[in-house]
Design a protein around this nucleic acid. Sequence first.
RNA 1: GGGGGCGUAGCUCAGUUUGGUUAGAGCACUCGACUGUCACUCGAGAGGUCGCGGGUUCGAGCCCCGUCGCUCCCGCCA
Length: 593
Amino acid sequence: MATSLRTDACGQLGRADVGRTVHLGGWVHRSRDLGGLVFIDLRDRTGLLQLAFGPAWSSAEASATAAAVGVESVILCEGEVVAREAERINPDMATGDIEIRVTSIQVVGPAVTPALPVARGRGEKMAAEELRLRHRYLDLRRPELQNNLVLRHRLLQVSRRFLSDRGYLELETPILTKPTPEGARDYLVPSRVHPGEFYALPQSPQIYKQLFMCSGFDRYFQIARCFRDEDLRADRQPEFTQIDIEASFIQREDIFTLAEGLIGALWREAGHEIPAQFERMSYADAMETYGCDRPDLRYDLRLRDYSATFAKLDFVVTKTALAAGARVRGLVVPGGAAWSRKQVDELEALAKSAGAGGLLRLRRADGAYDGPLAKFLTDETGAEFALQDGDLALFVAAADRIASPALDRVRQECAKRLDLIDDEAARFLWVLDFPMFEEDPETGALAAVHHPFTASHPDDMQAHPDHPARWRALAYDVVLNGTELGGGSIRTSDPAVQSRMFTLLGIGDTAEQERRFGFLLEGLRAGAPPHGGIAFGFDRIAMLLSRAPSLRDVIAFPKTTAARSLFEGAPVAVSMHDLDELGIQVKRSGDSA
RNA sequence: GGGGGCGUAGCUCAGUUUGGUUAGAGCACUCGACUGUCACUCGAGAGGUCGCGGGUUCGAGCCCCGUCGCUCCCGCCA
């Protein structure tokens, strides 16, 4: 870290340096003026270091400058590294056993009073996020965010080295691309040369990486910036980074091995050893047992089908539902019988917000059943629920597409309440065999669950050639503790099959297919190897590994939930002149479409 | 597009329940004192469009309507 202006970085000095004369530069983190003595905690990205000013070694001018300098100002100084006497050691500071006896100091970057504090007292809350984003240059000085971005850097380097070492080429793809008709909304960029025509920013480099395979670059990766114009969340930004990977002459297992190795390397870089191979579960099992395609395996609370038992009960609600072809599924919550009526009502509200009509409850306490079902139970049917004393059973009688998400939410909330989640556990999971298509319950129209370039399971296509809704996709997701880290698939490399996929998705017109996806179909027709790949949400991985509560804490300049950048103020209105040149007319707000 | 939370000094917050004199505290800031502090301590001071607009009222930080911003969630995110 030595330069012509400094010999050392603050956090890298230690007892071994005692006696050395050093030149330092950094920010005034805090200062303490005791009259005759002045102390400054000097900060740079490597850490904090105490500067000491006293009449025995500093000039009166230096002490006066130190006493007057404001926090967050940048100073240069010269002094001697001194060991602190035993009773003056600060055990809470990494460099707390030394200090610098400063002989000269220069304020090179005086700072106005900071708009928000960088140095916080113990227990002092952070400034509001709005202010942190508006004054991001200050917020980024906080050691927490500095550490997050340093870890992010290390994870990027590990990714590049891991993939490069295995023959993967880092290849770039365009940022100005073609709008895609499906999927998320595109960010559009007007063309000046062709008024009325638009580029789109890429949602992912999907088609380009497949064309790389057609061109013979059989192992590709990219740390790719992607853009989606959808509403934000704590774990969703409009502009984000993927580790994008594609390879040729491979099958699913090859991708699994590579991905497990890469994730292992990333977790190791952050100090965690993880299993060499991840657990596996089919999509169907995940939905049946957890009601969710990215189950959190750190706790049990599995869902079960209780339809057979309910069929024996003369209970109107469930009888009607069963007669209509629905199922009754539910879960048993050990200890849940102790919850109050209100607490269980809150669970029901969760289930309802997910679309369920209600949440049926059965309690067993002091050897007796309690709840609307209780009077319908016989010894035999009661036993089938297998409730222990203190258990609460919760059921939803509905079609799977309603019951699964509702029970998923109830299950998650129960785990939180019962404190069943081990924060230190890491349950990595491959979810396999996603369905190829999703059927609109009203229109029957098919939509791709993964994306239209995913290959279908060949057995399914053969067994049910006329029922594409029953085809499984050769798609896979990596899930950690209920969070999706990434996903991918084996792609369709046969242009005729790809064309049929478009037809199934409602793009039947050949001319239309060529217009939208011609460049991919041409690539496939020119000789395509079997290929597939995967993409990881890099920001989310960085967030998990730095234990940050929000994606915004691992992105240097993030957007707000309204997709605004508070620091530079984007987006902004542009001048009429610029719009004219682009051939664009803006509707005033309130104009109807 | 929908629902919840928040918005008072540079920062973090109290005050809003039940409208009533001059809107408070801690930190930061300014000035002063202090030779071993490390969240230094002590004394003094300055600092306010109570997000913004409108309404009700003799009187609004507080009640009502609207609006803006941040945030969490649902929808959305092939």
